[in-house]
Design a protein around this nucleic acid. Sequence first.
RNA 1: GGCGUGUUCGUCUAUCGGUUAGGACACGGCCCUCUCAAGGCUGAAAGACGGGUUCGAUUCCCGUACGCGCUACCA
Length: 450
Amino acid sequence: MSNVRVRFAPSPTGYLHIGGARTALFNWLYARHTGGKLILRIEDTDTARNSQEAIDVIYNGLRWLGLDWDEGPVSSTDFMASKGDKGPYFQSQRSDLYRHHVDMLLQKDMAYEKDGAIRFRMTRDPILIPDLVVGDVSRALTDREELEPDFVIVRSDGQPVFHLVNVIDDMLMGITHVIRGEDHLSNTAKHIALFRAFGAEIPKYAHIPLILNTDGSKMSKRDTGASMQTYMEGFFMPEAVVNYLCLLGWSPKDDRQVMPLQEVIERFDLPQILRGNARFDMVKLQWMNAEYLKTAPAPQWNTLCLRELHKAGIDISTFSEDYITGALATYREKQQQLIDTPLSAKFYFSEDFAVDEEAAKKQFVPENRPRVEKLRDALAGLTDFNADNIQPVFKTTATELGVKVGVLVGPVRVALTGSPVGPSLYHLIEVLGKERALARMEKALSQIPA
RNA sequence: GGCGUGUUCGUCUAUCGGUUAGGACACGGCCCUCUCAAGGCUGAAAGACGGGUUCGAUUCCCGUACGCGCUACCA
């Protein structure tokens, strides 16, 4: 047991940024590593863009990644439901707390009203920010701040601003470590000043570097891969996304790439977090995803495939579960094909699959006719119709014809799948079954000129 | 402009002053092979620049350049 209390405090903007997801992940990792608590707090002060859907996006994103929290809201249907005794966990429900604390500052003359807004009397001296990742940072006033060091903590419309509520919540919720994006580093001087004004203990800070686009520019909403939605709706395993994110800005210091989460939890710590911004590399994420996909449990693999098939408009409703599972299993080692072109699997579920014209032109030639015929006859005589038995049939037939196996594979593949590329032919024939396979060969023969 | 922060192969990274600067993704070649992949082997590929400190700097210090963040009555 430890007294570590960290938090993830997203604003419900309607989407979860990959950078936000990593911030959540690092907080979660630290909590799990130390045996501390992770608090989820919804920073919904901007009521204009606050909606249930926007909050669900956060819940769903975190849950998809497998990041659970120890305190905070628990339900998307019951607004008030929460766990933990430091609530409410929605800033929109904490107005009284904020007002009370602002009054305290006002009374002590640490804040004052000006033009209808309330400003905090900010220190003029540089503030030292001890950061667990970046080191000691001395933040001096900027030129504009020299002119007006006191910053607004309550707007003239009565709304408290981010800096204020963020500090009050961290203070009241007993946050011990603030792990957040480096974009808040400069602002931390204000936060520290506020903590001091309240006479509260200042949490430890760990500002983690940002995630940028491949070209080094800032990653915003529209950039590829920026939204968690991309992964949740795409052909991705959450374990892979988490693993990739762990390695972006943190390093186990050895050559490990694919790491079980449990091991990351054991080895994760704040000082090892890297100081430089990292560029997001979708290609490497895809590789990582492929690594996980290779050993994914069958149900998970099937679910992902089925979704792609559905998107591609392929109807599988008339096929048995065994048949579907068998068909999808043949794509296990060539997942990229199914991810990129799910339509290429249509031959399993329909006679109406696309035929590659070029391939047909090349394979459906007169000299292949007797070859396919001989193979058809050989296959027709096969009783135990499985890949292990089918393969020898191809070999034997090829030998008898005095050709290489590849010569037979070519036309048959196009006849059965319509494409020159695809899963292992022997396995694919097994799944298709004798009847279907022979029928398609027959159909192809009718198209081959004599 | 000001205040911060950062800079090792194209990308993610290893290196606690002394290494042929290592690994992974991507890329090239070879092998394997029923296609395509996967896999195995292999190749090319890096210390931003300039000064110091030191017997010796990728590593420590300073400067320059460039990147990123912050400079709001946004969060």
